[in-house]
C-alpha cells in the first residue's frame, strides 16, 4: 500500500509544532509590522500612540473582567489576544483621534464583545470591528476626520506633539491642513453631487496615487505582504481573503465596465480603505469566521459583496467593518449548512 507523501508517518520520536495562542498572535503582530512602519511613515506617530492607549485599556478591561470572574490573570493577559485586538483597533482609527476614542473602543471590544461571551474563543463577533462600528455610529465626526498623508502636506509632528494632540487636543499652530476626507469618502461625496470620477481624479490629482489614495495604497501593499506571510505560516485560511477580494474585485469590475464615470475601478476598491486589511487580518479571525472550507468561501464572498454594496450605495464611506460583523452574524448558519460529510457514514439521502 502506498500513501501519498504527506500522509507518511515516520517512526518516533516525533517533534510537535510549537503552536500556541501566544505564538499565533505574535505572528499576526509581526505580519502587521511592515504596514505599521509604513503607516508611521505616511501618517506620523499617531498609530503607535493609539496602539499604546488601546493596549493599556484592553489589558485593564481584561484584567478587571478576569478578576470579577475569579480567573487566573497571567495566562489570559499574556496570550497576546488583547495586543492583537488593540493593534487592529488602532489601525482602523484615525491616527490623531482623541485618546478616549481608542480607550472606549478597547474597553468595549474586550469587556462587552469578548469577555461577556467567555473570553477568547467564544466571541461570535470580531471585537476590534464591533468596537470600530460602535465608535463610528456614536462619534461619526471624530471617526471620519483622517489626517492627510505627510507626502501631500499632511501634519508632520514629532512624537511629543502627536501625544499632545491626542491626549489634550492641542494642535500646533504651524499645522495648516490637519485633516481631510479619505479618498473613499471624497469619491462618494463628489459622486453624490453628480461630479464624475474623471473630474474628481483630475481636480484632486495630488490625493490619488496609482490605484487609490496616496500613502493608503502603499500601506495596502505592505498589508498584502503581511497577509501573504500569514498564509505562508498557515496562520490564516486562504479561502477567506481570496473569496473576499475576488468577489469585491469581480462586482466592482462589472459596475466599472458598465459605467466607469460613476463606479471606481476594481483596483481602487481593493486598495482603498480597509479592504486588504480586512481581508487578511480581520475577516480571517479564526473565532468569529466560518470554519468549514466551503463555508469560508461563502463567508469571504459575502464580506466582499456587502463591502461593495455599503461603499457604493450605503451611508458610510467604508463598509468593511459592517460587512465583517454581518457575516460574523451569519457564520454559525453558514457552518450549519456547509458541514462536510462525516467519514464512515453514508451520505444523507
Amino acid at each position: 500500500m502506498s500513501l501519498p507523501p504527506h500522509l507518511h508517518t515516520p517512526s518516533s520520536p516525533h517533534i510537535h509544532a510549537p503552536t500556541s495562542v501566544a505564538r499565533l498572535m505574535l505572528t499576526v503582530v509581526i505580519a502587521l509590522t511592515p504596514a505599521a512602519i509604513a503607516h508611521v511613515w505616511y501618517f506620523g506617530w499617531g498609530l503607535p500612540i493609539q496602539t499604546l492607549i488601546a493596549l493599556i485599556f484592553a489589558l485593564g478591561g481584561e484584567a478587571l473582567m478576569l478578576r470579577l470572574r475569579r480567573r487566573p490573570l497571567t495566562p489570559y493577559l499574556l496570550d497576546g489576544s488583547a495586543l492583537v485586538t488593540a493593534v487592529l483597533l488602532a489601525f482602523s482609527l484615525p491616527p490623531y483621534a482623541p485618546w478616549w476614542i481608542a480607550a472606549l473602543g478597547a474597553l468595549f471590544a474586550i469587556v462587552v464583545v469578548k469577555q461577556l461571551y467567555g473570553g477568547l474563543g467564544y466571541n461570535p463577533f470580531n471585537p476590534a470591528m464591533a468596537a470600530y462600528a460602535m465608535l463610528l455610529i456614536s462619534f461619526p465626526q471624530e471617526m471620519t476626520t483622517w489626517a492627510l498623508p505627510k507626502v501631500i502636506g499632511g501634519p508632520d509632528l514629532d512624537p511629543l506633539q502627536a501625544l499632545d494632540l491626542i491626549l489634550f487636543g492641542h494642535a500646533p499652530t504651524t499645522m495648516d491642513a490637519l485633516s481631510g476626507a479619505t479618498p473613499l469618502d471624497l469619491v462618494k461625496t463628489q459622486l453624490a453631487q453628480d461630479i464624475t470620477l474623471g473630474e474628481t481624479f483630475s481636480e484632486y490629482a495630488h490625493l490619488f496615487g496609482d490605484f487609490s489614495g496616496r500613502g493608503i495604497e502603499w500601506i495596502g501593499n505592505w498589508i498584502l505582504l503581511g497577509g501573504l506571510f500569514l498564509l505562508y505560516k498557515r496562520a490564516i485560511a486562504w479561502q477567506i481573503p481570496l473569496a473576499m477580494l475576488g468577489s469585491l474585485f469581480a462586482i466592482a469590475l462589472v459596475f466599472y465596465l458598465a459605467d466607469p464615470d460613476s463606479y471606481p475601478s476594481p483596483l481602487f476598491h481593493v486598495f482603498s480603505g480597509a479592504a486588504l486589511f480586512g481581508a487578511f487580518f480581520i475577516a480571517t479571525d479564526p473565532v468569529s469566521a466560518a470554519t468549514t472550507p466551503k463555508g469560508r468561501l461563502i463567508y469571504g464572498a459575502g464580506i466582499g459583496i456587502l463591502t461593495y454594496v455599503i461603499r457604493t450605495w450605503g451611508g458610510y464611506p467604508d463598509g468593511v467593518a459592517f460587512a465583517v460583523l454581518l457575516m460574523n452574524m451569519a457564520a454559525p448558519t453558514i457552518d450549519h449548512y456547509t458541514r462536510p460529510r462525516v467519514f464512515g457514514h453514508a451520505p444523507k439521502d
Binding site: 462600528a133 455599503i310 450605503g314 458610510y316 459592517f322 460587512a323
Partner: peptide
C-alpha cells in the same frame, strides 16, 4: 442591531 446600522442610507 449595530451591524445592521451598516445598511442605513441604502
Amino acid at each position: 442591531s449595530m451591524a445592521f446600522m451598516g445598511f442605513s442610507g441604502l
